[in-house]
Design a protein around this nucleic acid. Structure first.
Lengths: 233, 233
DNA sequence: TCTAACTTCGAACATCGTTCGTGTCAAGTA
DNA sequence: TACTTGACACGAACGATGTTCGAAGTTAGA
């Protein structure tokens, strides 16, 4: 019948007050990224982040406009983990490929960030700017025109985000469910008159999580080969 | 103090009972697509669909396992609107390009469906199977190996979905907000020491909704050019 | 006619993002 | 030292969302 939390007795110095260091943008982004990294995108709610900071959801809105802005900040922080070398015209193909791989690696490390940030055409912060500038410099050093470099930059970035989103969607417990789905589909196709969907049936087994990296590499290599054809002309 | 709804008087024939034709999978998918087409993805909640059918949300779950399944059904219905010709080996490049354009056109017509269906690796129904089979046939007729065709099919489909999702995200009132964002970014970059982000600043004005189609075409053309390099070897 | 299966759907649950208003506390000012 | 001011903290609540439960209503077959 007394208050759940008794007030501190007077002989306990007031300086011992809760250490509760103040909230800040950076601290919020930090714990949100930590949550995302080890618990997946489902754990990334304002309430959950606030809980991890021992506070309520309303407290976050003093430092962050809304959930979308938090995600943008997180994404930019992630891009900051990538480091790049100055463009070397003789190796622009390899450098470009490396940059794409680094970008997906950074996104895959935090599963779910890619799908959240897919619908954001405009670069989201200083690190995104640095990254974009580096990629454009490499493309220009490969002999592409301004316009070609811009479109290639756009296409590669979009594809990288989409690929990262796909890979991230295999987290949680969805892996087994997906395999089950594939099995059902194979059986369904076998039940059809022979000859229907023969091409699809042939490649079905190729699509698994193991070949994901190979698929991404093929896409990037093929696109760069196409850029080559443009640059040589 | 009588029941809220009085029973029908006996002289009213029982046949006049509410015409309420029964629900069905197809009818649900239909109205969901209609809602999506003219009100955008935000209107696509189970409650909203149910409301458009003059019923409650719980009624939908007798015909559809959950929201995800409804989206899959919608997507497959959309793919059914695409029609394709038999593969012509001499025109495989043009046919492939056409198929990609038709696919995006179908998705863009229903803004939001692309982003919802992005994280679904496996084809989702009979129309998706038909579409995949057609694309694979074209790729094979162009001289690509089974594996190459599979990877190209994967990459093109993923990119088309991502592009459609991006285009769809410019609906609602976001167009103006996006332009404002671009303006702020340009100003921010101008405020930096001259020379930083010079490549980005140069291409900034190129990115607008008007050039979207050109960007997509560039990506597809470049990728097909890359496939050419593979096929000729 | 009776039964069993399938639909319908009101009500409720657990979440979610976000806002409002009040409380708290530290720094600046008189 | 006393008072004001402003920024932050946060409990409570609002309006949504997807989904489940269980009791009615309806239909079809034996």
């Amino acid at each position: 019948m007394f208050p759940v939390e008794l007030p501190d007795p007077p002989w306990r110095t007031a300086a011992r007050k809760p250490v509760r260091q103040p909230l800040s943008r950076d601290k919020i982004v930090d714990t949100a990224l930590g949550l995302l990294e080890k618990e997946g995108i489902d754990a990334l709610s304002m309430r959950r982040v606030a809980q991890a900071l021992n506070t309520g959801p309303a407290s976050l809105y003093a430092h962050v406009r809304n959930r979308d802005e938090l995600c943008e900040l997180m994404f930019d922080r992630i891009l900051g983990e990538i480091d790049f070398q100055p463009p070397d015209p003789g190796r622009w193909r390899a450098q470009l490929k490396q940059l794409c791989f680094d970008q997906v690696a950074a996104m895959v490390k935090y599963p779910g960030i890619a799908s959240v940030v897919m619908n954001a055409m405009i670069p989201l912060g200083p690190n995104a700017l640095r990254h974009g500038e580096a990629m454009l410099a490499i493309l220009r050093s490969g002999g592409l025109s301004e316009r070609q470099a811009a479109w290639a930059f756009d296409a590669l970035g979009l594809y990288a985000k989409a690929y990262a989103a796909e890979v991230a969607s295999w987290r949680d417990g969805a892996e087994e469910e997906l395999a089950e789905r594939g099995r059902q589909m194979a059986e369904y196709m076998r039940s059809l008159p022979a000859g229907t969907f023969s091409n699809l049936m042939a490649i079905g087994p190729l699509f698994s999580a193991e070949t994901a990296r190979e698929r991404f590499e093929f896409a990037i290599d093929t696109f760069i080969a196409g850029l080559d054809a443009l640059a040589e002309r």
